[in-house]
Design a protein around this nucleic acid. Structure first.
Lengths: 171, 171
DNA sequence: CGCCGATAGTTGACTAGTCATGCAATCGCG
DNA sequence: CGCGATTGCATGACTAGTCAACTATCGGCG
């Protein structure tokens, strides 16, 4: 199958810039592998900061805070203990504790020590947190689905496969 | 060309885990596009934190500090003004100023107000900074070239192309 | 029962990135 | 020439992520 299958480009094409150009890098890359790794990281940064801006504009919330709210919504009425949230975020606990502090301050979550195991702190989305999520979901969905218009399914699968394989190289 | 051309897998395969598995995510993704975006970000995080650990172990330095040192080495004996460094890092100035503060404290760079334009601060790698870089380059090169053993050139080119195209969607 | 190790979280001290502000040096234009 | 706009950084106040150390609770075992 052709490389650029169905990449319908916009009228005034937004110019596909290479990683080297984005970085104003003078010298070329040592290897294709190096360029690929850098491309992954630069692309990720761009995606993340774009989403950060949209979320901040729409709901004065950060991406990580949004993620925690979604995780908690998914967990239902009983909520989740702190460490469980940390695991799903692939992040160390201390950061999560403080992130939850901020979420609680803004009134988007509620926390209370578990009765069965008093070491645990159960966290759940508040009513206003759910309302916020409802507003934000549309924005995030639109953001997430943008590639569908420019890539075919086969291409996306290929991209995902390569990224999964790449991760497997760095355990 | 076949999808998994020459992916020589190791004997006891390191198990290719999907993004969903990494995240302990219960529900599947809404779209392939969403999965791809998440794969980019999760993979980037993994790569970055792996490299972070190796650099910290080898030279008590962070990835960003290492990047600045490399940029300055590339700039030669005259060094670069602060804002120029910031541009090449795709980062806002305040962060760079403070990063340079820390680099100077550790003795890896030297700074001084430019004579021609006294608003500028010229930064250059110190002798000890160069020595550090020499030690670290081997480590980073090895890290960067790892994918060469698992991917073919055509695959890497394809990956890079898709990531470039993806970035173009989020200007 | 009582103590000891494991588990759940919090706190402190860093690095880093972001925005808003402030200030000094330089440029440009009348 | 001089004065206002621009440029180049620095500082302050946040969010976030990391490691190390500490507290409180639970569970199991003698």
């Amino acid at each position: 199958m052709s490389a650029q299958a169905r990449s319908r480009r916009k009228s005034a094409a937004p110019a596909v810039r290479s990683v080297a150009q984005e970085l104003k890098q003078s010298r070329p890359f040592r290897s294709l592998a190096q360029e690929a790794l850098l491309a992954v990281m630069v692309t990720s940064d761009r995606l993340a900061s774009r989403l950060d801006r949209e979320l901040a504009a729409a709901g004065d919330i950060t991406r990580q805070q949004y993620n925690v709210l979604r995780i908690l919504r998914g967990a239902g009425a009983e909520g989740l203990p702190t460490l469980e949230i940390a695991e799903r975020m692939i992040e160390r606990t201390p950061g999560v504790t403080r992130l939850l502090d901020r979420l609680e301050l803004k009134g988007w979550i509620e926390r209370q020590r578990s009765a069965e195991d008093r070491r645990q702190v159960r966290c759940k989305v508040s009513r206003s947190g759910l309302a916020l999520l409802a507003r934000l979901d549309a924005i995030v969905d639109e953001f997430d689905d943008l590639p569908d218009s420019a890539f075919g399914d086969a291409e996306l699968r290929e991209l995902i496969r390569m990224l999964d394989a790449l991760r497997a190289l760095y355990p």
